[in-house]
């Protein structure tokens, strides 16, 4: 475990750029590639998702990430998680990371909740003993005791999200990365997850929270970055960034944007 005296920031992002190529089609096939090559159409296109972004997150704090759809928020968090490689620059992460980036613990809706939790945990590098020790906490926090042995396709989206969140926070992470996951639970579960995240921070953990729910960002974060078209537009106190961001959205801080939608 990194000690409290460790002077290094939990996350240090330096001149990070992420560019990736993806296919034009949702479901690329050999056949369509041959057809497209015949017509001399482009088969792949390049996306500059993150451009030259630098910031750092001190240990024990919560960083909020806001920005419009397609601003590069998810790509940024994925590269902090080590899922997407940087094209340029570097990312340094000090601590054990737990992620909640795509909704659902993981795998396969045909499998039961229990199987998904076990597979997700093993993939993330936990041992069977660690998993067994945490399993009851995960189920209790998600309030899904009766559903763990049912296939996950029978879960509601709220249950899906609750289990995913519960897995992520119950693994005692030093660093928790969350991508728009708080909107799935009901108000009560949301309050519960806020409390849990604060508790993690008091225990010196670091949280990165991507959300469109500006009120959540305001309530939880110590600092906020605003991503715009892959660039870091602003990095400041929550109030300042949210004011500038809502002004940019030309909507003002009305109920719709502040609400957790």
């Amino acid at each position: 475990m990194p000690s409290a005296s460790d002077p290094r920031p939990a996350i240090h992002v330096e001149d990070l750029s992420v560019t990736y190529r993806t296919s034009v089609e949702r479901r690329p096939t050999l056949r369509s590639m041959i057809v497209r090559a015949g017509r001399r159409e482009r088969y792949v296109h390049e996306i500059e998702a993150v451009k030259d972004v630098s910031f750092e997150v001190p240990r024990g704090s919560v960083l909020g990430v806001v920005g419009a759809n397609g601003a590069g928020k998810s790509t940024l968090v994925r590269s902090i998680a080590g899922i997407l490689p940087p094209t340029a620059g570097r990312v340094e992460v000090n601590g054990r990371v737990s992620t909640l980036l795509a909704l659902g613990v993981g795998f396969n809706r045909r499998l039961t909740g229990r199987e998904n939790v076990v597979l997700g945990g093993l993939a993330a590098g936990w041992s069977r003993e660690e998993l067994a020790a945490k399993y009851d906490d995960i189920v209790r926090f998600a309030e899904l005791k009766k559903f763990m042995d049912l296939p996950m396709r029978m879960y509601s989206s709220g249950m899906y999200g609750r289990l995913a969140f519960s897995v992520a926070v119950n693994m005692d992470p030093d660093i928790l990365l969350i991508d728009e996951a708080l909107s799935v639970g009901d108000a009560r579960f949301k309050r519960k997850s806020f409390r849990r995240m604060r508790k993690l921070c008091e225990a010196d953990a670091t949280v990165v929270l991507v959300s469109h729910a500006l009120q959540s960002i305001k309530d939880l974060c110590d600092q906020v970055i605003w991503m715009h078209e892959g660039e870091l537009r602003m990095w400041d106190e929550p109030d300042a960034v949210i004011e500038a961001y809502t002004e940019f959205l030309e909507v003002g801080e009305d109920a719709v944007t502040m609400e957790d939608v």
């Binding site: 990312v91 054990r96 590098g125």
Partner: peptide, 14 residues
Amino acid sequence: DEFTSEHHVYEPHK
């Protein structure tokens, strides 16, 4: 330290 649990550095190697 690519995948180890404590300290990670990610640099380009696409």
